[in-house]
């Protein structure tokens, strides 16, 4: 029974970490976007600001989005499934 509890703690730990990572990345992305807007509003030459926004920011944003989506759509459901399996096993033992 203790073994199952330890496994569950490990899985809960990973799930919490991923949820925090996903929320953190969302916040970072918003802050990133507002820095880009500030740069444009500050009057930085349009070709400089546009190039940064269209090339650098878009590439970075795409990767961050991919990570966020992967956490939400793949990781969390997989971990939840594993948690469910262990919780069921724990119930059976009790």
């Amino acid at each position: 029974m203790q073994d199952y509890q330890r496994i569950l703690d490990g899985l809960y730990g990973l799930r919490n970490f991923l949820q925090q990572l996903q929320e953190g990345l969302e916040t970072q992305l918003n802050a990133y976007r507002s820095h880009i807007t500030n740069m444009i509003d500050a009057g930085v030459a349009i070709q400089v600001a546009e190039k940064y926004e269209e090339v650098n920011f878009r590439n970075n944003e795409n990767i961050i989005r991919q990570i966020i989506n992967s956490i939400l759509e793949d990781d969390i459901p997989y971990i939840n499934n594993q948690i469910q399996i262990i919780e069921n096993a724990l119930k059976d033992v009790k």
Binding site: I7, G10, L11
Partner: peptide, 11 residues
Amino acid sequence: KILELNDCGVP
């Protein structure tokens, strides 16, 4: 966190 899974006895 992945290493911790091993330590926790996750299969």
